[in-house]
Design a protein around this nucleic acid. Sequence first.
RNA 1: CCGGGUGUAGCCCAGCUGGUAGGGCGCCACAUUUGGGAUGUGGAGGCCGCGCGUUCGAGUCGCGCCACUCGGACCA
Length: 479
Amino acid sequence: MAEDKRFVEEITPMDEDFTRWYTDIVTKAELIEYSSVRGCCVIRPYAYAIWENIQKNLDAMFKATGHQNVYMPMFIPESLLQREKDHVEGFAPEVAWVTMGGNEKLAERLCVRPTSETLFCEHYKNIIHSHRDLPKLYNQWCSVVRWEKTTRPFLRTMEFLWQEGHTAHATAEEAQAETERMLNVYADFCEQYLAIPVVKGRKTDKEKFAGAEATYTIESLMHDGKALQSGTSHNFGDGFARAFGIQYTDKNNQLQYVHQTSWGLSTRIMGAIIMVHGDDSGLVLPPRIAPVQIMIIPIAMHKEGVLDKAEELKARLGASFRVELDSSDKNPGWKFSEYEMKGVPLRLEIGPKDIEKNSCVLVRRDTREKIFVSLDELEAKAAEILDDIQASLYQKALKHREETTSSAVTYEEFKDAIENRPGFVKAMWCGDEECENKIKEDTGATSRCMPFEQEVLGDNKCVCCGREAKALVYWGRAY
RNA sequence: CCGGGUGUAGCCCAGCUGGUAGGGCGCCACAUUUGGGAUGUGGAGGCCGCGCGUUCGAGUCGCGCCACUCGGACCA
């Protein structure tokens, strides 16, 4: 189609080169601009507006589950970071250090937070004394820095935005319940707002967070069949509490250690939105988080009454939707392409012919279907279509994941699946890290998670070593 | 961090064996246009990634560095 041909010059088709398609989208849709600092990107207003919608809705879910927002310092003294052995070992290789204050060398260097467990622990040690002080359900929205060797917009940047929840509980049971509850919040958020289906499960020890007792994850599948860890929730048990001395007096006047959790979701999720829903014409945004849900494009706007009518529709729709009117002097064809690139879910065309008929044209971004609508029923129809787009984006992504998820019983089947059928591969695992390492070496795939919904494949033997299996694992190549 | 590729106007790129910086798109002004990235006329815009070297002379040659990009390793 002529229409698709135009974009060949602008966006690399995803089937030709998915990674180039991705980098084309993030710049052409005005999401990212590179900065002069390696691995650090400017998050442009359009992308930031998406992030704000993510923040707004996710934050409401945190509040609804009893959490409070706080803000911690961005610097961590070296001695504080080193308090928990596994934690510091995990993060040390990717920490940025501040060694000078003005012209003075610091007595103790400060790390720029790669995550804030240690700061929360120090604070909790000071404010938790009694069982009456528990639980503490804190969250912070901030940026963190990790000195990454390879970076990619949204997926892995040296500085990124996220939220990190940190909670302290009286018992191990409460901490476990919190860990699972927040994982479910993430899963619900991804499915309901971002239209991204996720697999919920537990990470293997090899893949779990530094210092955690257990790490839970939501894993999503990109259009190219690669997996993306989209959010994690950790149960720390009392490990950090023992390292930092966070104790409270229980009802029996006994000193107890608290049990802690942490959970995070970052701007990396923006990469998932792009790679799950996008197509060769650009972004496709789920209506619930799209900065602009309806873009009004006047046709022949110099003609009497067109702009007035467009303004009137904007005011009307503005009562229920995020709506914009593009009355710039670009021609309509340019505007159509531009807002397809930006993934605006619904386009409204209004011209002299429509006004004559008291109607307008709605065009869906996901299917490009043109729908002629009477202005009398505009709000109802727009709401219905936006809901349908939201639902069908989810269904399409779910169908794609299901169609690209395969199972393997023998190692030959497994290697063949990873190599030739991009997507999750379900296979049994013995629980031994050596098999994970071998699989990584042989195929490039890693264990994504042990899903909550377990099954037994074949005669329950590890796909790699053939010994008795301990769990079903989702495997895949990942970002 | 290892290997490949690329850095020239906002973007895409040309620039030969060294000799005064080019094109298309975009941008600005005006006019005509407007249902899938319009047309015409005029105009503005360059530390040729940075540094050092060779040379009478470097966008071009040499060395070093930086950034982006693709692949890998790493990133729990």
